[in-house]
Amino acid sequence: LVRYRTISKIPQITLNFVDLKGDPFLASPTSDREIIAPKIKERTHNVTEKVTQVLSLGADVLPEYKLQAPRIHRWTILHYSPFKAVWDWLILLLVIYTAVFTPYSAAFLLKETEEGPPATECGYACQPLAVVDLIVDIMFIVDILINFRTTYVNANEEVVSHPGRIAVHYFKGWFLIDMVAAIPFDLLIFGSGSEELIGLLKTARLLRLVRVARKLDRYSEYGAAVLFLLMCTFALIAHWLACIWYAIGNMEQPHMDSRIGWLHNLGDQIGKPYNSSGLGGPSIKDKYVTALYFTFSSLTSVGFGNVSPNTNSEKIFSICVMLIGSLMYASIFGNVSAIIQRLYSGTARYHTQMLRVREFIRFHQIPNPLRQRLEEYFQHAWSYTNGIDMNAVLKGFPECLQADICLHLNRSLLQHCKPFRGATKGCLRALAMKFKTTHAPPGDTLVHAGDLLTALYFISRGSIEILRGDVVVAILGKNDIFGEPLNLYARPGKSNGDVRALTYCDLHKIHR
């Protein structure tokens, strides 16, 4: 019993810090008490220290592992850092350059016999395009090294910054494609005289377009951006097909006994025919423009016929181009109408809503002055909100995010209106959640004399007048207030005048 009563005193000691020596009952000389009392004092002292730490809000209350900052290894790049964003855009520009100039170089340097010394005699450094290609190869190699040090988000939505895990993730992902696209074939085969082989191998750079397509997928929600990307894709495919079309004609031209190829026909049409040795002929500019003209006309199913396939190889390629053109029509131009419709969806919704308003007016036989006010209010409210119901949009977000959005939407009023000066951010967040926005066209009466005042109004834009009878008592403008002081009276009061809008007004109100 003594032991039980001794232990039962522990909660009292913990909360009230009572010393055991003052209790005459606990001072009985028993061996059990002498053993338990020192333990009680020690526990009391420890609990006292913990309570003191909690009340003082000291940093040592938290466990040590929670006080440590997340460790980022040296030379690790955050995937959302500004440097990584700028670097990704730079790589994107280099990939676009590669997609345009690599097929052009591979096709127009394929057994090209233009006048001038061969590239091997001039030297590697004197070729501007080769120098640019070398810079692109170096940048792609540097990009691989950067990807080995860039964080990523795993399946659990955690940012991984450990170098080993980053390397394994990159090896399992895009490393092989990036490595093949970054191989400097110019340096590996330079001086061997195989410019045709170098041009063909350099087309491996186009593998990076797969990554670019995935990154550009984030802009699919913007109709104008999608339309622009589709047109660029169409032009890029036409450019690639033009390079292939020229390569076919250029390879067949020296081996044909009869002059029936499209390059021969082009030379005869523009007065620059090929001679018996295969030299001469149109310039590279004429060849490229004509090839691009043929691919565009074939892809769009126009086909004027002034550039036509004559050999079997050219006919087979033309059939493939027609098939590609039909697929592009289905996948690209078939979506253009939907994209344009999405661009004008706001206008369509406006006309639909206006039609419903006019049908309501016609069905209920609203008189002319009231009908005009109804239409003007709808037009003004639509121009202010673009038909978007803010309350319906915010309803799907958590309250903390709703408060931040409301604070942002009402920031101008909260910053410049005098009653809100000096208020804490928590108070402003709470008030912003209570605001209701209303609009009024010129001549609209917001409050009639004798109406119950259940709200306090803040003028965000425009001006109003307060009338008693036919006498203008006051004219209020931006950041002015009218209405009933909230919670100042037990019952809502009545208006002693009319409140009429002089201009288009936007008002925020808080109800009782």
Rank of each mutant, 00 (worst) to 15 (best):
L67V: 05
L67Y: 04
Q68G: 13
P70D: 15
R74I: 03
S81D: 01
P82Y: 15
K84L: 03
I96S: 01
T102G: 03
T102R: 01
Y104N: 01
S105F: 13
L110Y: 05
L110C: 15
K111F: 01
E112F: 05
E115D: 05
P117W: 06
A119T: 04
Y124P: 04
L129H: 03
L129K: 06
D133E: 15
D137Y: 01
V142T: 05
I146H: 01
N154A: 11
A155F: 09
E157L: 14
E157K: 13
E158C: 05
P163I: 04
Y170T: 01
W174V: 04
F175Q: 01
L176C: 13
M179E: 01
P184V: 01
D186W: 10
L187A: 09
I189P: 13
G193W: 11
G199T: 11
L201N: 01
L201M: 01
T203A: 11
L206M: 08
L207Q: 01
L207H: 11
R211A: 01
A213V: 07
A213M: 05
R214G: 08
D217E: 09
V226P: 06
L227Y: 03
F228A: 09
F228C: 13
M231G: 05
T233E: 04
T233R: 04
F234L: 13
L236K: 01
W240S: 01
L241E: 01
C243W: 01
W245K: 01
W245I: 01
A247K: 03
E252H: 03
Q253H: 03
I260S: 04
W262Q: 03
L263T: 01
H264L: 01
N265I: 15
N265A: 14
Q269W: 01
I270Y: 03
Y274S: 01
K285E: 11
L292M: 01
F294M: 03
S297D: 11
S297M: 03
S298K: 03
S298H: 03
L299A: 01
S301L: 10
F304T: 04
V321Q: 06
L323R: 01
L323F: 03
I324R: 01
M328S: 04
Y329P: 05
A330E: 01
F333L: 12
F333R: 03
A338M: 05
Q341S: 10
R342K: 04
S345W: 10
S345K: 03
G346E: 11
G346Q: 11
A348T: 10
H351F: 05
Q353R: 11
L355D: 13
V357E: 02
E359W: 01
F360T: 02
F360C: 02
I361A: 11
H364Q: 03
I366C: 01
P369H: 03
L370K: 01
R373M: 06
E375M: 12
E376R: 13
Q379A: 08
A381S: 10
W382V: 03
N386E: 04
I388E: 07
G396L: 03
F397T: 07
Q402I: 04
A403P: 02
D404N: 03
I405G: 02
H408W: 04
L409Q: 09
Q415H: 08
H416M: 08
H416L: 03
C417G: 10
K418I: 05
R421P: 03
G422I: 06
G426R: 03
R429V: 03
L431Y: 01
F435R: 01
T437G: 04
P441K: 08
P442Y: 01
D444H: 04
D444K: 03
H448G: 09
